[in-house]
């Protein structure tokens, strides 16, 4: 009995904690935007961050994109073949990738690859007192550390997701047409006919929002990490979990707005 009450209590407490976190993230996004406007432009640091986060995630994005497109094509073919509508494969693959899977899977992979490294890096900068060192050299560490990273993720994620989309659709085409024998003309024609500019724009809006979200949450959690090796490890896990959940929730909200 008490065990159950305790478990329920724990669940309730964690739920409230999560709500509080989400509230924190909302206020944080606002203050981050203010920080972005107030900070001096740091082109060089942004380029360095795009290199570390964007270029660094390229390989994993290409691989994920390719396999997503391939499995969508395979799965979609067997479903559509039952209704004699294999010709719809192109649009099925393209629409799923552009509207949902590209932004969401891409952003989740980038969270795992780049988001975790942002949190860990900032956490380590705290442990090794590099943040204080910046402060002692009259550099606002929040502006210097957080701002370039948020800009870098907000810019890199849409670019990475665009690459994910194109590779995914290409891989879907190869599996559908070369392996399963769908007519190449109808694959492409269906795709061009069914995908509208609106679909593509929805994808972009999602990509930009996810990029911003990754930047805000991962920098924040890294910056607030308990400055110990253990604290940084915990913060990194936490950053990935919270960002991933946040992406899925935001995805639902954005989808319901644009459908």
């Amino acid at each position: 009995m008490t065990a159950m009450v305790n478990t329920l209590g724990l669940m309730g407490r964690n739920f409230l904690l999560m709500l509080q976190r989400l509230g924190d993230i909302a206020t944080l996004s606002a203050s981050s935007l203010r920080l972005l406007v107030a900070s001096p432009w740091q082109g060089r640091h942004i380029v360095m961050q795009i290199y570390a986060l964007g270029v660094g995630s390229l390989v994993i994005i290409a691989i994920t994109g390719a396999f997503t497109g391939m499995v969508l094509s395979l799965q979609g073919y067997y479903t559509l073949a039952k209704f004699g509508s294999e010709s719809l494969l192109g649009s099925a693959v393209a629409l799923s990738i552009i509207r949902e899977l590209g932004p969401v899977l891409g952003a989740l992979m980038i969270t795992g690859r780049a988001g975790s490294s942002i949190t860990a890096e900032i956490g380590i900068m705290r442990v090794t007192e590099q943040v204080d060192a910046l402060e002692m050299m009259a550099i606002n560490p929040r502006a210097r550390i957080i701002m370039p990273r948020i800009i870098a993720t907000t810019l890199s994620v849409p670019l990475l997701i665009a690459i994910f989309d194109v590779i995914g659709i290409g891989a879907g085409y190869v599996v559908g047409v070369d392996l399963l024998g769908v007519n190449p003309g109808s694959f492409v024609a269906e795709m061009q006919a069914k995908v509208t500019t609106e679909d593509i724009n929805t994808g972009w809006i999602k990509a930009v929002s996810f990029g911003f979200l990754i930047g805000v949450i991962c920098t924040y959690i890294g910056y607030r990490a308990t400055p110990t090796t253990e604290g940084v490890g915990k913060a990194t896990t936490q950053a990935v979990v919270i960002t991933s959940v946040g992406i899925l929730m935001l995805d639902y909200i954005l989808t319901s707005f644009f459908l």
């Binding site: 393209a94 552009i98 849409p158 670019l159 990475l160 665009a162 690459i163 989309d165 194109v166 795709m191 061009q192 995908v195 509208t196 500019t197 679909d199 593509i200 724009n201 972009w204």
Partner: peptide
């Protein structure tokens, strides 16, 4: 490459 992918999608699909 990223912008190329974006433009490609916008022109070919949208």
């Amino acid at each position: 490459i990223g912008i190329l992918s974006m433009v490609y999608m916008a022109l070919k699909l949208g």
